[in-house]
Design a protein around this nucleic acid. Sequence first.
DNA 1: GAAGATTGAGTGGTCAATCTTC
DNA 2: GAAGATTGACCACTCAATCTTC
Lengths: 155, 155
Amino acid sequence: MSGQAVPPALRAWTSLVRAHAVTGHELKAQLQAEHGLTGHDYEALYLLARADGQRMKRVDLAERLMLTPSGVTRLLEGLEEEGLVKREQCETDLRISYAALTDAGLEKLEQASCGHEGSVRSVLERNLSKAEIEQLVSLLEKLPGGDDGASCPGV
Amino acid sequence: MSGQAVPPALRAWTSLVRAHAVTGHELKAQLQAEHGLTGHDYEALYLLARADGQRMKRVDLAERLMLTPSGVTRLLEGLEEEGLVKREQCETDLRISYAALTDAGLEKLEQASCGHEGSVRSVLERNLSKAEIEQLVSLLEKLPGGDDGASCPGV
DNA sequence: GAAGATTGAGTGGTCAATCTTC
DNA sequence: GAAGATTGACCACTCAATCTTC
């Protein structure tokens, strides 16, 4: 049963989805348990920390996180209440507001990132050699979404 | 700025997450728009169609879909209302119930799978060569979750 | 009129508690 | 007491509608 040949492209997608699900699930649980952060919380803090002036337009944040505008509003709502992010306004265009990292937010990120990045490296390096990891990167970066990292310098 | 070397393992995870997010987003939108199915709806029908007797224990379905028991209850609630899935009981153990594919469910899956699988192949084969896809499969299957496909023969 | 942001209603999931059957 | 399933309360997000500013 089920001996029919599955096209490699379908197997690739299936295994990508499962790898993401299994590992992502574990990583999110860890962030939640140890730091009270959701995956999006962490990613937002991470992006802000590396952004110019440690702040981003909310609309750009939405795009990077693959959230809708309202999703970002609600995400930042929580982070602002915890004091990890603060709101800043653009002086020349009152429509635009920025999300800016606070000192507490940076500290929180630093606390979380060590363990998180360690877990990520652990999963990858436990199952793949150095060369295989490099291969994997170069393959994945050819897929949609793989080229977005360098561009979008912001304002 | 940000010229510091990022470990390859982190780049691998980042690109995997983004590839999954971007392509997965598109695929889900397509399923929803063309067939009124969520990603989990589709995957459930897919798993049931390939299961022995075209039915699975709800608890096994939960594990494969990475859902909690209550998540499965609610997922199947919807599919039962649409007549795509029906409930069956185990005769020897009254605690267990099965989710079984109906004729309508199989038909729905066949309608959806053609376009869906075509989209998956299109994305992969547009960006990677045949050899690269094979490479990608073998790398991803070494990660957690990559070996689950063959096992779990069920009852 | 278009862009950014927010709000209300709805969806798809989780967790904790409960019920039944083993 | 443990396993399977369900329920109620809640959470994170989406969509459609609205408001403000350009």
